[in-house]
Simulated assay, not measured.
Amino acid sequence: METMKTLLTRQAVRQYPSTQLTSAQVQQLLQAANAAPVGMGQYENFHLTVVQSPAIIKQLESFSQQQPYYGAPTVIIVSAKDPGAMELLSVGGIVENMALIATELGLASCDILGAITLGLAKDQKLSQKIGIPTGFKPCFSLAVGQTAEPLTARQPTIKRITTNFVD
């Protein structure tokens, strides 16, 4: 898939069949995460947690009044050591890389922040239970799964974000 088509096809999906990702798909998501640019090249300041346990996903969702993972069979949590502005920007790049490769693979995804900041980041016991290293703070997550319907590209535009030019 060419880059612009992937960008135009990537979308937040909020409904997933229960079919689990294959090991090869997970490996490609992790490879995309590791290809993301991070501040000062300090990859050691980031950690990925792949959650495929329905019981743990349900625990993560318990911090919210809704089901923020929308039935996705896989949730990937990105944690950072002492997250400041640079680390949070890097976390965004890591998540976006995974979302883009998910799209290229024909998978659905959705960026999820609330379940992490409202719950997991404050629950040391659960963080330890799922293997987030000491000193790391869960910052963001990505729900990933098979698609219920094929993803389709949107029409390209440059009018969604206001722009000014300085000559």
Rank of each mutant, 00 (worst) to 15 (best):
T117Q: 15
L100P: 13
S23A: 15
T117A: 10
C139V: 01
L8S: 04
Q31V: 11
V78E: 07
M4A: 09
L88E: 04
I132N: 00
I101K: 09
P37E: 09
T9N: 01
V50M: 01
L8F: 08
I76V: 14
A153V: 11
A24F: 03
L60G: 03
V91Q: 00
A99Y: 10
V91N: 13
L21Y: 06
E149R: 04
Y69D: 02
V51T: 10
P17K: 02
M86G: 00
G84R: 09
Q31K: 07
M1Q: 06
T22R: 07
L113M: 02
Q15I: 09
P133V: 13
D167S: 14
E104S: 08
V50D: 01
V13F: 08
Q124C: 08
S90L: 10
G92N: 11
K81A: 00
A99R: 06
Q25R: 07
A153W: 09
E96Q: 11
Y70W: 15
E87K: 14
V50F: 02
T162L: 03
D167G: 14
Q15S: 15
Q124M: 12
C110N: 11
G84C: 07
Q146K: 11
A12L: 03
A72W: 07
Q27M: 10
S127Q: 09
V26S: 00
L120W: 12
P37S: 14
S18N: 03
T162C: 01
G131M: 08
I112Q: 06
L30Y: 00
T74D: 01
Q65P: 09
T117C: 12
P156D: 03
D167Q: 12
Q146I: 01
L113V: 01
L120K: 08
M86Y: 12
Q66D: 08
Q42K: 14
T74R: 02
M40L: 11
T147E: 08
V166R: 14
L120T: 08
N34M: 13
G119F: 04
N34C: 03
K129E: 06
V166E: 13
T19E: 08
F46A: 04
E61W: 05
V95Y: 00
Q124Y: 10
I57A: 05
M98S: 14
S90P: 08
G119H: 08
Q66W: 12
G41P: 07
G119A: 09
L8H: 04
Q31C: 06
L89C: 14
K125T: 15
K159C: 05
S79W: 03
L107M: 07
G93R: 14
G114Q: 13
T162A: 10
T147L: 06
T22G: 15
E104G: 03
Q65D: 00
S109F: 07
D123C: 12
L113W: 15
I76R: 00
V91W: 07
Q20M: 13
V144P: 04
L151V: 14
A153P: 13
E149H: 06
L48C: 07
V75N: 00
K122L: 02
D123F: 11
P156G: 06
A32E: 05
T103E: 00
F140A: 07
